[in-house]
Simulated assay, not measured.
Amino acid sequence: MVLNNIEKLIEKYNNAETTLQEEAQLKAYFLSDEVAPHLEHYKPMFQYFSQSKKEQYTKDVPLKTKNTKLYQWISVAAVAVLMLGLIVPTFIGPTEEEKQEALLAYNQTIDAFNLISIGMNEGKQQLNSLILVSDNLNEGIEEAGRLSEFTETTNKIFKNK
């Protein structure tokens, strides 16, 4: 009966369904000398698990301390640069005359873009007119094709040719 129970526990163990108590039973069974011959191949695995629990790392781990003074000075320099970046533009910023010149240049640029836009809109209207002419020409060619069919049919009826 014990062997049958161990086989069921091994099956549960392989399916990852065992509890800690059941795993302890399996460990105790495989560490004993009374292991069934057909289950001998599980014995090294459980022996490895019991030995690996006893292992400890005994070497010293050296911890290097970092030089924090350099990082402190870098942070101070970064704050100084940010402060200068925020304060200096307010004192050295553009004068009223420069602002007026920039606004005048902006307005002239907008006027130039408006003129270009007007010219492009006129060109678009001319292209629309060309498209309309092209469509009418294509319709005329189709009508001419129908006229030649009509002429051929008329000639057949009157047997002119």
Score class of each variant (00 low, 15 high):
159 K>E: 08
79 V>I: 15
106 Y>I: 06
89 P>S: 02
113 F>R: 15
19 T>D: 04
38 H>W: 04
133 V>P: 01
43 K>H: 03
141 I>H: 10
132 L>A: 10
67 N>R: 08
46 F>R: 00
75 S>V: 04
122 E>H: 00
31 L>H: 05
160 N>P: 02
20 L>N: 04
80 A>I: 15
1 M>T: 09
18 T>K: 07
62 P>K: 06
36 A>C: 04
29 Y>N: 01
138 N>V: 14
1 M>H: 15
127 L>G: 04
85 G>C: 00
64 K>A: 00
62 P>H: 10
55 E>V: 12
107 N>I: 07
104 L>I: 02
32 S>Q: 05
155 N>G: 07
150 F>G: 02
114 N>W: 14
13 Y>L: 06
39 L>K: 00
1 M>I: 13
45 M>T: 14
94 P>K: 08
56 Q>L: 13
110 I>T: 07
95 T>F: 07
99 K>I: 06
138 N>D: 06
82 L>W: 14
37 P>H: 13
41 H>Q: 02
103 L>F: 08
154 T>N: 10
46 F>G: 05
61 V>H: 00
98 E>S: 00
77 A>Y: 03
20 L>F: 10
64 K>N: 02
137 L>G: 03
118 I>C: 05
76 V>T: 08
123 G>K: 11
134 S>R: 03
159 K>Y: 08
76 V>G: 01
36 A>I: 08
79 V>Q: 12
78 A>L: 14
38 H>V: 05
23 E>H: 08
120 M>G: 03
5 N>S: 09
92 I>C: 04
51 Q>E: 15
90 T>E: 10
